[in-house]
């Protein structure tokens, strides 16, 4: 029993530990813990935003990390990065190392390689790290806007100062407006305010009344004209009637013309036959003439030449 218990416990411990180790080993293998690594050196003006263990990204993929940071004698920050051998192909002599400091979020350390045909980055060379600072960029972009805002506030200040100044332009405008509204309130109408004289206003009223009479008369005239033109016995209906009759007659003429055309075509056909007949008669007469001539030659004794036509 004791042996059985020991065996079971031993098996449990061994199997479980093996499972755990296998899991951890697989994880370590997949994470590249057993892969040989290449070390590269970089230099930077500042170590701000950099830290040991910071990942190095290429096209959004983690390909390495910072393993060491130290200050050189010249005051430059020396950065040692470690990249697994399988990712060493992305590290080229013309690769650019960038530390991107976004406006929001933590800095991102990345390598940008555009030419994969250039030579591999040497472990002895020291590449320069470029810093891209979104905050500074944003400040630079905002600076002109801030200057414009400052100008606008200056203008607003001047405007408000002008408003507050009793001798200022705005005060003058307000005074004029006040006078205008005062004048408007003392007149009977806007027209009187515009022309400035009451008699002139009366004259304009009289003219307007005359104009109204004239338009009334013109209206009556137009009504009468309309009756004569478009009335029951007006000109336009009569013209329409005549035109309709004309159209009917034209239809009939059309038919007649069709018949005439047919007759003329028939006649043309007959003419062709007559021409043939004529040519035949002509040839017959010619033949007869030739015969008569022949007879005249052969019968000289005949005093009276008679030819009997067919």
């Amino acid at each position: 029993m004791a042996l059985k218990t020991e065996w079971k416990v031993g098996l449990f411990i061994v199997l479980t530990v093996l499972l755990i180790l296998a899991g951890l080993g697989y994880m370590a293998y997949k994470k590249g813990f057993f892969q040989p690594e290449n070390a590269y050196n970089l230099s930077s003006r500042t170590g701000d935003g950099l830290s040991v263990g910071m990942p190095l990204f290429f096209s959004g993929f983690k390909i390495g990390k910072i393993v060491e940071l130290e200050l050189s004698d010249k005051g430059m920050v020396m950065i040692k990065i470690s990249v697994p051998t399988q990712h060493a192909k992305w590290m080229r002599s013309d690769s650019k190392f960038v530390l991107e400091k976004p406006l929001i979020g933590s800095p991102k350390f990345m390598v940008i390689t555009t030419n994969l045909k250039s030579s591999l980055l040497s472990a002895n060379s020291v590449a320069v790290l470029t810093e891209v600072n979104d905050i500074n960029d944003a400040i630079q972009k905002i600076q002109p806007i801030l200057e414009q805002v400052a100008m606008i506030t200056d203008n607003i200040e001047r405007l408000t100062g002008s408003l507050a100044d009793p001798e200022g332009d705005m005060s003058k405008i307000l005074n004029h407006t006040q006078k205008l509204t005062g004048s408007l309130s003392s007149k009977k109408s806007i027209l009187e305010m515009a022309v400035g004289d009451e008699k002139s206003v009366q004259a304009i009223h009289a003219s307007l009344r005359n104009a109204q009479n004239i338009t009334d008369q013109v209206g009556q005239l137009l009504k009468k004209t309309d009756e004569e033109l478009y009335g029951k016995n007006g000109i336009i209906p009569l013209v329409i009637k005549i035109l309709r009759e004309l159209v009917t007659n034209l239809g009939k003429i059309g038919k007649t013309l069709d018949n005439v055309e047919k007759i003329s075509s028939d006649t043309a056909e007959s003419t062709k036959d007559l021409k043939l007949f004529r040519s035949e008669v002509d040839s017959t007469v010619n033949s007869l003439n030739r015969l008569i001539n022949e007879l005249d030659k052969k019968i000289p004794f005949k005093s009276e030449q008679k030819i009997k036509l067919p």
């Binding site: 449990f12 411990i13 479980t16 530990v17 499972l19 755990i20 899991g23």
Partner: peptide, 8 residues
């Protein structure tokens, strides 16, 4: 051991 086994 059991926690690790549970996780696995």
């Amino acid at each position: 051991l059991l926690s690790s086994l549970f996780s696995i």
